[in-house]
């Protein structure tokens, strides 16, 4: 049933794609038939699989570190007002640097490495998580905190048993948003001289005017994004099962 719910929209989209191209006689320059795009992926399966894995790895690395840094920063900001007053404006300012400019700097720092792409994915990920985790911590009922304190709970206990679980719904909202951002970050990172990855493929197809290869790269990117999003949603369903019932 869940599988059907997942597959059905995809099939519908595929049918719409094929149908529109055939019926409206769309020039393949604008939108090639889906089967041609899938054929291109099939023909170079290992290459697309490798690109998928490489970009997934970069995005996930940045995403995981970004998520952790976000939660840790939010924890620090929640407990230390002065730290928040001092650092939060810097966090905000950091986000005003266009990602392309940031990418250029990161490539100068880290060269053509996984770290460079992960750094950009991280850059786009940590901020939404920080903001949402902080909002989650702040929204905790102070009476809950008082109750735990009356039990003699340490700060650490309160964080693990109350603050973190309470903030999880908001953290996951940010993580779902960040899944797409991390992918975008990894792809942008690959636009600065990477040899492999979905972004590198996208760029090569773009500049060689290979429309089919471009759509194949786009589909692969969507698969990477879908994979990250799917895992986040699965973990969320397991950890925040109680959310809908609030």
């Amino acid at each position: 049933m869940a599988l059907l719910r997942l597959v059905l929209p995809l099939l519908l989209l595929a049918a719409l794609w094929e149908g529109a191209v055939a019926l409206l006689q769309i020039s393949p320059f604008y939108l090639p038939p889906l089967r041609q795009v899938l054929g291109a992926i099939w023909a170079l399966g290992p290459a697309y699989a490798q690109a998928f894995m490489v970009t997934l790895g970069e995005a996930v690395a940045g995403f995981v570190v970004g998520g952790l840094v976000g939660v840790v920063s939010a924890t620090a900001f929640h407990h230390q007002r002065w730290l928040r007053d001092m650092l939060f404006p810097l966090f905000v300012a950091s986000q005003t640097v266009p990602v392309i400019a940031f990418g250029a700097i990161v490539v100068l720092w880290f060269g053509n490495t996984l770290l460079a792409k992960a750094a950009i994915a991280f850059y786009l990920t940590f901020f939404p998580v920080t903001v949402n985790a902080l909002a989650g911590f702040e929204a905790v009922d102070p009476r809950q905190v008082a109750l735990l304190r009356s039990f003699g709970a340490s700060r650490r206990d309160i964080w693990w048993k109350l603050l973190l679980p309470s903030a999880l719904p908001r953290i996951f909202t940010a993580l779902r948003l960040s899944a797409g951002l991390a992918l975008a970050g990894a792809i942008v990172g690959e636009w600065f001289g990477a040899s492999i990855g979905v972004g590198a493929m996208l760029l090569a197809a773009l500049f060689n005017e290979q429309v089919v290869a471009m759509w194949a790269a786009i589909l692969t990117a969507a698969a990477v994004g879908g994979a990250i999003f799917g895992v986040v949603a699965l973990v969320e369903a397991r950890l925040v099962f109680w959310r809908d019932e609030l």
Binding site: W191, A194, S195
Partner: peptide, 8 residues
């Protein structure tokens, strides 16, 4: 060998 590109 590192490829170049439009942003480099």
């Amino acid at each position: 060998i590192n490829p170049g590109g439009p942003n480099l």
